[in-house]
Amino acid sequence: MSKELVNAISEMREQEALKLAKEMVEGGSDPMAILDAAREAMGIVGQRYEAGTYFLPELILSGVMLNQIAEMVKPKMAKGPEMKRHGKVLIGTVAGDIHDIGKDIVVFMLDVNGFEILDLGIDVPVDKFVEAIKDFQPQVVGLSGFLTLAFDSMKDTVEAIKKAGLRDKVKIMIGGGQISDEIKKYTGADAYGKDAMAGVSLAKEWVGAK
């Protein structure tokens, strides 16, 4: 049945996926196995997004399916799901910018590729990034921004990380609608990712994951 669940989710058959998950939960299946199937399906969705056959509707719908299934399974679980993770990525849209579509895609792709992510959300003040680096201790920091005004916010954020003495503890990648290699140089980040897949590759390279 878990194979059917994987198919239903990855083929975007929401009603069927939820029905299958419900039957599995009620039939006493191992909650972890159900979640593993959902995770496997998310991996397939990620691969198809990367291959250019899936787009925003599929990422959003599969995310919604995963959440619904996780809600169903949760009461049956002794403790939270544990997954082996490659490494930690701290991510957020920089100060003054409240755009999140691009950032959310990157978060999705990092997640299905096995990273632990702390998403600080949008309009994240410089200090908040610095504090979160101290607490969360990520290897990678992702700065997102859509507006030209974000160029300076990214620069300020990188400088604040430097000033806090944390610059050599993290690799910093930037991305967003108008971001390029020129902006990478301007901000002092380590790299720029053209799209979510590039972000995943960078993060993998930096944490030494395959």
Binding site: T148, I183, K185
Partner: peptide
């Protein structure tokens, strides 16, 4: 003309 070029070029 790209905004990154106008911004930092």
């Amino acid at each position: 003309v790209p905004l990154d070029l106008l911004g930092v070029g």
